[in-house]
Design a protein around this nucleic acid. Structure first.
Length: 672
DNA sequence: ACGGCTCAAACC
DNA sequence: TGGTTTGAG
């Protein structure tokens, strides 16, 4: 049976490293007097002492559990120390923990292929390191085995206490008659123990780890003995480990699929799953999932450790549960501004520290309408090219929101029927930046360019939006500045003056037809943001733009991301579509608008239109001269230097690097 | 529609 | 594709 052979032939050494109650450890490092005490990290405080997101092992002994409220924890464990998650801009700020996670990753990454699985989890492929050790200094040749190694748990090994236990571990690790795979695992045990000691020494954090032949088993093992311990899964122990394991404990089966296996097929343990043939599972769950299920039941998982140390996206979001749900546009805009500030800050860090640029901005929101019948419709997500700069992100985010909002409300949303205003609520907002690409090396001035884009506040239309909104009655009143960490109350949700009804979203000029409606949806900056918070100059050009019909439904692009598009083409496939050229061309004019800080909106917009049509159908081999002309000279030089040599060899799809999918952005035309 | 906030990936 | 869904910590 070919697949079974795949399993026994999987001689990789994979480790899963899991930080112990990570947030608590981070806080305890910052506040050493908390060490050893029952401690929990709590998020927000307004309601019943906030929610616990990390609990120390001392506190767990007292019966404190995750997903308890702070008050509850105090009740069962009065001595518990509650530490609040840092708050910035009225929302949880996880940067402290992200930074701490990066510390750990940078240590672990030195020993082999490393994948940052979450803020506090890492997978390592230690196969090479283990093979080297086996060749150079096999365990059996070692006279001294580190204490940390001897504390390892080896599944399937007899459980004896005290020093006997450690002797057994030593014997197992140094066994001469072990097969090659077990010897490799032994090397893995030694390496991981060393790594964990190093992490402790350099970060003061303890962690637990699992060592096995694949990710699935390693992950399973890392959770079996916590905290500060490691567990190894020899092949010989796989069957026994899995046979009695509840199906829902498996990595991808904690949700609906796992439930379906239980209720539809009566499968409760992984052992039960063994009874089903591959084809039977495929009949129920499709070809891919079926095969996958059949495999994992046997401990087979070919999933590779991705060599990725950095996140593929950055997000910032906040929920507004129950009575806190947002009910006015101005509060929505206020929170989007906060989220945008945070996101922009993190993008700047990413740029500075990792030399990466994100190119897509996405908005998600959740909402409900109570009065209407179809109140269950989902609030759609929207995305657009990401332009660097806080105010740009704020503006784009709000425009995305409005585009989605209008879609959510439907075409009748604008005119409240029967004089009854529709009651909608926003219960969650989040924005994220994705499609992050590396800046090619040797382009430091390009980086500076983006940095300045994000730090220099653009003083044209952008500022107006924000200024105006903070003046809005509801936003300015009661906004008692950072009175405490209780920023939850910082933003009043009650409408004081203006109440926005749906007609705020309707463009007076525009007869809503399906075509232009669609254009609008994909073209947030051109959206008729005819709200009271919108600047006059914007309003004029935007309404004008709206009326314009595109001769091509795959229209795209505004503004800034042209450089990013070049990078993407550089990193990925050659630009065979004219869209790429289109992007570059259009954005060049937008840059001109930026450089001349007296950019008049409608004028620029018109110019863009002309240029766009003129350049329609450019061949993409050449970058439009105007792109360069608009850029600072040193950037022009660097652009040329890294574009030229690349031209010939970017056809091959480098599949190994997940970030190299060919990306053709289809963006709306720009608005300024 | 009280667990809040992030992330990745499969899917269509 | 982008947008949705799922699942994870």
């Amino acid at each position: 049976m070919p697949v079974a052979r795949a399993e026994t032939s999987d001689a990789r050494v994979i480790a899963h490293v899991d930080m112990d109650c990570f947030y608590v450890q981070v806080e305890q490092r910052k506040q050493p007097e908390l060490r050893g005490l029952p401690t929990a990290v709590v998020q927000y405080n307004e309601w019943q002492g906030g929610g616990l997101i990390a609990v120390s092992y001392e506190a767990r002994k007292c019966g404190v559990k995750r997903s308890m409220r702070g008050d509850e924890a105090k009740a069962v464990c009065p001595q518990i120390q509650l530490v609040q998650v840092p708050v910035a801009r009225g929302k949880a700020d996880l940067n402290l923990y992200r930074g701490a996670g990066s510390e750990v990753v940078s240590i672990l990454a030195k020993s082999g292929k490393c994948e940052r699985a979450s803020i506090d989890e890492v997978y390592l492929d230690l196969t090479d390191a283990a093979e080297s050790m086996l060749a150079d200094a096999p365990p059996e040749s070692l006279e001294l085995i580190d204490e940390e190694v001897l504390k390892s748990h080896i599944l399937g090994m007899s459980r004896e206490d005290g020093d006997d236990f450690k002797e057994n571990v030593r014997d197992w690790i140094c066994r001469k008659d072990a097969d090659r795979r077990e010897k490799l695992l032994s090397c893995g045990i030694i390496i991981v123990a060393e790594l964990r000691k190093q992490v402790l020494k350099e970060t003061e954090f303890t962690c637990s780890a699992g060592i096995a032949h694949n990710k699935m088993l390693a992950k399973l093992a890392s959770g079996m003995n916590k905290p500060a311990q490691q567990t190894v899964v020899p092949y010989s122990a796989v069957q026994e480990l899995l046979s009695s394991l509840p199906i829902k404990k498996m990595k991808q089966l904690g949700g609906k699929l796992g439930t379906s296996l239980q209720t539809d097929l009566g499968i409760d343990t992984v052992g039960d799953l063994l009874q089903y043939s591959e084809t039977k599972l495929q009949e129920h769950y499709g070809i891919n999932t079926g095969t996958w299920l059949w495999n994992i039941a046997r401990g087979i998982s070919g999933e590779e450790v991705q060599g990725r140390l950095l996140p593929k996206s950055h997000g910032s979001g906040k929920t507004f549960p129950g009575p806190r749900a947002l009910k006015s546009l101005s509060t929505v805009q206020h929170w989007l501004n906060q989220l945008s500030e945070e996101l922009s800050e993190r993008l700047s860090s990413d740029l500075e520290q990792n030399k990466r640029i994100a190119s897509t901005l996405t908005l998600h929101a959740s909402a409900f309408k109570s009065r209407d019948s179809n109140s269950h419709k989902k609030f759609p997500s929207k995305s657009c090219p990401l332009r660097y700069g806080v105010t740009k992100i704020q503006e784009d985010a709000f425009n995305l929101f409005q585009a989605a909002f209008r879609e959510y409300m439907g075409p009748f949303g604008s005119k409240p029927r029967g004089n009854k205003q529709e009651t909608w609520r926003i219960t969650g907002l989040s924005i994220s930046a994705s499609k992050i690409v590396d800046i090619p090396s040797g382009t430091s001035s390009i980086m500076r360019y983006f940095q300045s884009e994000s730090t220099v506040p653009s003083r044209s239309v952008d500022g107006c939006v924000q200024d105006h909104v903070t003046i809005t009655p509801s936003a300015s009143e009661g906004c008692s500045e950072q009175r405490s960490t209780e920023t939850q109350a910082a933003m009043p949700e009650e409408e004081t003056g203006v109440t926005y009804t749906l007609h705020n979203f309707e463009n007076p000029d525009k007869g809503i037809d399906p075509v232009s409606e669609k254009d609008v949806v994909s073209c947030p900056s051109n959206e008729a943001t005819d709200v009271s918070t919108q600047s006059e100059s914007n309003k004029g050009t935007q309404t004008k733009r709206i009326g314009r019909k595109m001769n091509n439904s795959k229209e795209k692009n505004w503004g800034m991301p042209s450089i990013v598009d070049i990078f993407k083409n550089y990193n990925a496939t050659p630009p065979s579509k004219q869209e790429t050229q289109e992007d570059s061309t259009v954005s060049s004019t937008s840059k001109k608008a930026k450089f001349s800080n007296s950019s008049h909106n409608s004028q620029v917009n018109q110019e863009v239109e002309e240029r766009r049509e003129k350049d329609w159908g450019y061949k993409t081999d050449e970058i439009d001269q105007s792109v360069f002309d608009e850029l600072p000279v040193e950037i022009q030089r660097e652009l040329r230097s890294f574009l030229r040599p690349n031209k010939q060899f970017n056809a091959g799809k480098s599949k190994g690097d997940g970030s190299t999918s060919s990306i053709a952005h289809y963006f709306p035309p720009l608005n300024r």
